[in-house]
Design a protein around this nucleic acid. Structure first.
Lengths: 343, 343
DNA sequence: AGCCGATCTGGGAGCGCTCCCAGGTGTGGC
DNA sequence: GCCACACCTGGGAGCGCTCCCAGATCGGCT
């Protein structure tokens, strides 16, 4: 009973074929349910495979088919940050589900440090995966450029670090969403509408801030000094709200660029004795399913569904894998406003 | 410029060798920095690889080496639940880091529904990964038993669904941790020590509950009717605390089986006007780095480090992969008590 | 001078699979 | 009766790599 005693040789296709009394070719055809196999042969092969506990060697298979059945989901951001961000977690979850639904395996990659960059590139290049869904929100991120040289199809979720041409992108209408939110506040008679913006090194928060500003100007309101930048965290949102209150005690509404920051803002407002929405109306962005409706009061939020985004990304990727001639473009998904008690 | 125009043939090892003017064998040796390659040859090969943009075909490599360099991390629980549970997220994160540190790629697998079970088994069996780290906390989970037949090495994190023999397990000392917590409360003079237990279909919460009960009995205190079961969520913790307060308005301490539930309990206690720790002392379990110290007041919590657990699991797995004759056993990692203001 | 070992190189075999092609058998139409 | 064409089967080649083995070269030692 040495260490490898239990290591009975793994049966190969050849073994299954011999056991079933057919040729390797026929066995292969039966297992891949190809046409042109007699019912009798198919039965024998399947029975043999079952009896021997056969499972095909993926390395051998993908050596010849040049397919692995795996798709990478690359998140270019510190994992520490990532898993605390409910939006990213939702993306991961969506990726897992959507890929499983089309029979693909998700391989999750966190690419953060510079060292990771080359590791990531090497991995994607190495034939471990057939393609990749890449989320690299930061403008200065070198990853997207590095990936352009790769020989596997790639679809970006959100803007690809300033690259505007030659890449497949599925993004939400961030500016439009911000407009929706602010128009809603204006229509409700709010006049001192502040914003807690996200990190301005990323496209999405930049566009949301722009949407807020433009809508205010269009409505004849003055945005000056009513914006505060924060880092998408709860604490960041709380601090930004404090700063806004200190500067402008008369704010009557705030558009917050993410649900998580809105939760922080809510706490600050509550601690400051402001009633919501009576004194200050709050509208946020993301409409996270577990967060937004669970707040007190429930948050009015710009609805964007990560599942929908990933679904579109997967669809494009599959077409690319299928060798269809798709010209790279930016798909912009519409967003809507989920109105709840906070506004 | 057809769709495959950009698809320049990927260079193979043979191409690199030809370009460098050496044989395939020498090229292979140079790239895998084997001994017995002259410095000159190595230089030429590396230069050729760089110039041609060569990256080895992993399928071909693992077909012969029988190694993929990938390790599965299997989480047997609904992904919806998983990603909301900070402990699980910490485990994922730790898995990614620890595996990256030893040059392995993490392949994340959520195995939840019954349909997933066979998919998971097929995947693990298919040679996609060299081994697996499995977290399957539920006692009734059929996964661990299904995995026993597999031909790849597996290490379990936490009890493996009632299987006590023949598997490698790395677990924390749940009962000991609970004892630590309750002894701490007893020593502080608390006499009505309730508990909010986790789901009793899992080993860890069962052991924590047992630890609480035994320690109370040892101290001559009566546990009767002072336990409430909840589901590891914030809301569950809050509700359980309400139930306890209703039954026993005189509780002066509560041992909560997870940080997340403790946050819920804190809210309920706060809403009920109880001061912490003056009126009611709170001790929880997990000592989650972002949760426990951030509470108001900061939580006293039983410290268990998922990174440490995963590290031990990876170490065992690597030894198994290295074909070392390790006899399966249960490793129990010690826990400690991080005392903060809540008790 | 002769020999032995260390160092380096190239070719061949083979990992387990899919795909192509040649061939065999049966069935229908003229 | 014969051909055409479907249906089914087996063998061979080859995917790109690693590993083994045989051979070549070069010192350093007896």
């Amino acid at each position: 009973m040495g260490p490898r005693a239990g290591d009975e040789e793994r049966p190969t296709l050849e073994d299954v074929a011999a056991f079933a009394g057919v040729s390797r070719s026929t066995a292969s055809r039966a297992l891949n349910d190809d046409a042109y196999v007699s019912a009798a042969a198919r039965e024998k092969v399947l029975a043999a495979a079952r009896d021997l506990g056969y499972s095909p060697n993926q390395a051998a298979r993908s050596l010849v088919t040049r397919r692995t059945g795996a798709i990478a989901v690359v998140l270019s951001e510190p994992e520490a940050r990532l898993l605390d961000d409910p939006y990213r977690t939702a993306v991961m979850r969506a990726g897992y589900r959507e890929l499983a639904d089309v029979g693909r395996q998700m391989v999750l990659i966190f690419s953060d440090t510079r060292e990771d960059l080359s590791k990531t590139v090497r991995f994607l290049e190495g034939g471990h995966v057939d393609g990749a869904l890449v989320f690299a929100p930061h403008r200065a991120d070198p990853l997207p450029k590095a990936l352009r040289l790769l020989r596997i199809p790639i679809v970006f979720g959100g803007q690809a670090a300033g690259i505007r041409r030659g890449v497949h992108v599925v993004d939400f209408d961030n500016e439009g969403g911000a407009r929706l939110a602010v128009q809603h506040l204006v229509a409700a008679g709010r006049r001192r509408i502040a914003t807690i913006a996200g990190p301005q090194d990323q496209s999405a928060p930049i566009d949301r801030l722009a949407g807020w500003r433009k809508t205010l100007l269009d409505a004849g309101l003055d945005p000056a000094d009513l914006a505060e930048e924060a880092d998408f965290t709860l604490a960041g949102g709380a601090n930004a709200m404090s700063a806004l209150l200190a500067r402008h005690p008369d704010v009557d509404a705030v558009f917050v660029a993410s649900d998580m920051m809105a939760v922080g803002a809510l706490r600050t407002l509550d601690a400051a004795g402001r009633r919501i929405p009576d004194d200050v109306a709050v509208v946020s962005f993301d409409d996270n399913a577990t967060l937004a409706p669970a707040m007190d009061p429930p948050l009015t939020s710009v609805h964007q569904d990560p599942r929908e985004q990933v679904h579109a990304m997967v669809e494009i990727l599959l077409r690319l894998l299928d060798d269809q001639d798709l010209k790279p473009r930016q798909h912009v998904l519409p967003v809507s406003l989920a109105v709840r008690a906070s506004s």
